[in-house]
Nucleic acid binder design. Structure first.
Lengths: 186, 186
DNA sequence: AAAAGGTGTCTAATTTTTAGACGTTTTGCA
DNA sequence: TGCAAAACGTCTAAAAATTAGACACCTTTT
């Protein structure tokens, strides 16, 4: 009945859309561009994070690869976190992968809490980097029908109400009768 | 039109449902029980985590407070992580708050990734503990109508398709026409 | 320039949701 | 224990939404 397929398959895309790479090291940008050109249709790069939002309103970006340390000598990752949050506030659907100079667990926690999709540590392994980026996009592109979302939310809500259907229906903003219908169907 | 209110208000509940506390230290369980009795309708305690699942199938649990170190001398938190994952596999809607003997960042990351709702470190501050538990439940009980979930998912999907409505409708499993209707309404 | 795909709009048949009602069962509490 | 309130399951008829299909008109790709 409901026709499911992978977005990538559906659109007959061989590549993974547009990636934006933000890093203040021009050499890294060049290396990234070279590395990712096969995988992505468009590879955009930015040395200065201040332009991220402007660029993202002009261009449709599928994934962002964001360096965590911009100002030389400041390695706390604060600026990276700031830009991560700024991006996610404006574009909550766009996954952001973080690039850290070394494994910083506390930064990892903050990054996760701020909605980063994944981490990559410098120096990076090319294959691993490409694999992680692909994974993030594949995961995001998993198709979820409206029915599925609806069913899942209904299940959760009933769970929260400990099985009280009258209350669940009220919380869901639908009639009890409608809830019965949907449960019968889904 | 859609009537929204907090579940707690709605049900005229003065207390926060049923909490399950799992810790192998009986003294801690006693202290917890005394501390949380005012806040929760039922305070259940378990010394042995092996019984968690059985108990949760019998009782309807609103939140779990889980110690991370059970076997004396083993402080890696592995057993706590195992039980966290086990609980979340069976009861994805039930929030689990972790109790750690000391601030272990790497354990925090793993716990977050495994779906823990929050962390509390031993020794704990009573007020902070109660506040955190309340916060978790309040957050979970935020009411989300079916319409809202639908609207949000539609927005996401259209975003993913970069504005292609025909494709979005197909992925959502609805007619293009229906998508137009819903967009006009929502 | 042709082909393919997307948009916006329409119709008519079908399905779903709604408000409201009813008697029964369960739950909370005095 | 027993009463009252709440939840359940089922029904109706009116209102609303969804569906498949069609059409002319843009864009993009080739």
């Amino acid at each position: 009945m409901i026709f499911r397929q992978n977005l990538r398959t559906f659109a007959a895309m061989s590549k993974y859309g547009t990636i934006l790479i933000v890093d203040d090291n021009a050499a890294i940008l060049t290396a990234m561009r070279y590395l990712l050109d096969d995988t992505f249709e468009n590879v955009l790069t930015l040395e200065c994070p201040d332009d991220i939002l402007k660029l993202m309103t002009q261009q449709s970006i599928d994934i962002v690869l964001l360096d965590m340390n911009f100002t030389l000598g400041v390695n706390s990752g604060q600026e990276g976190l700031f830009w991560l949050r700024t991006i996610r506030k404006q574009h909550p659907e766009t996954p952001v992968v973080l690039l850290t100079a070394y494994a910083d667990v506390s930064l990892a926690v903050k990054g996760l809490k701020s909605g980063a999709a994944d981490f990559i540590t410098k120096p990076w392994d090319n294959d691993e980097l490409v694999r992680k980026l692909k994974d993030v996009l594949d995961m995001q592109n998993e198709i979820v029908s409206l029915d599925e979302v609806e069913r899942e939310h209904i299940r959760r809500t009933i769970d929260r109400c400990h099985g009280n259907l009258t209350q669940a229906a009220e919380l869901l903003g639908i009639t009890r009768q409608t809830l019965y219908n949907k449960m019968k169907r889904l």
